[in-house]
Nucleic acid binder design. Sequence first.
RNA 1: GGGAGAGUGAGUCGAGAGGCGAAGGCACCGCGCUGUAAACGCGGCACCCACGGGGUAAACAUCGUAGGUUCGAAUCCUACCUCUCCCA
Length: 353
Amino acid sequence: MTIPFSFNVLDKDHKARHGVINTSRGDVRTPAFMPVGTAGTVKAMYMDQVKELGADIILGNTYHLMLRPGPERVAKLGGLHKFGGWQGPILTDSGGFQVMSLAALRKISENGVVFQSHVDGAKFEMSPERSIEIQGLLGSDIQMQLDECIALPAKTDEIERAMELSLRWAERCKTAFGNQEEKAMFGIVQGGDNERLRIRSAEVLSELGLKGYSIGGLAVGEPQETMLAVLDYTCDALPETKPRYLMGVGTPDDILKSIWRGVDMFDCVMPTRAGRHGQAFTRFGKINLRNARHAEDHRPLDDKSSCPATRDYSRAYLHHLVKCNEALGGMLLTWNNLAYYQDLMAGARLAIS
RNA sequence: GGGAGAGUGAGUCGAGAGGCGAAGGCACCGCGCUGUAAACGCGGCACCCACGGGGUAAACAUCGUAGGUUCGAAUCCUACCUCUCCCA
């Protein structure tokens, strides 16, 4: 059954929106949090659990899957959904973030990026066209244009150069993507903390008539206040009728404040990574289970939670697992954290309605 | 009974072989992770202080214990204690 990609806003409160994205692989309720599954796995989680927590969509990564196992192989094996056992929609990042995070291992030019594999040093050329091709081979439902993400603080001319390059790449990605009713390709707004550049980026991308708009290059070193200011004017410059995706953000606080400013979609490694590193997100704030004070605390993280990881295991036991570096510790805390994030989003949707 | 070897920083393993207020690992105690080079990284972990970095002046501590050699000893010598191994 082919269902065209579409987005509908159901309710609004101030600039906050509750809506739904329809895809042929299922609906995505917004505001949505997308667990990060870089290498075809939401680390330390079973896909069934991710689904059960209320995640409608997860993220995959073009760069990582390009290196291993390779997009052609994934395609041969039936696509990323079948390969990884996730039947819902998948959004893939383009490799643009790795332009920043792997800055020491890549060369950038007008044509694209040449990455030196962080695994074995092999060279991989990634043009905007190749990024879209890879995302197509993976079977991604929502694909990202290749962009150049840069860290802040940065000089204005550097921000502008990266933003303009990203705009040219957006056009090439749009052409490469072509017309695919049931899938989407999002453009990525860049422009750092500069209002003029952000608005230009948003306006040029808007003119391309894409199915959704990402806001990239935030939470990359600037204070939250700056990020929120950027969101204020950037969201206003984007079409009302298209989903807005704030890439890579963030903390629960970041997310709520961004929803208030009109953002519909989020992804972040924070709940999964922090979980593996011993930190739990709870209604009572962050809890560092490595701390000695939990060693004899018989209480669960939150006895009112419906998540087994949150409700059924004592802090003392979680502390023990984390201290012993047992795999289950990271698994339970990731589970708890993703439950917390999904509950947060459910609460936001409800509050908006 | 004879022979050989070893004891290192008030958790542990352990480098060290005349200038050491003694490397490093683990443990321990904290902190940090924002489109994942991350089940990882960073800091602290026997003196003193303004706790930011400094300082060896004083006090204090220091390589099993006690002496000795030396300007100077974890390092060399002697004795003792403890442990390990080999031979009887």
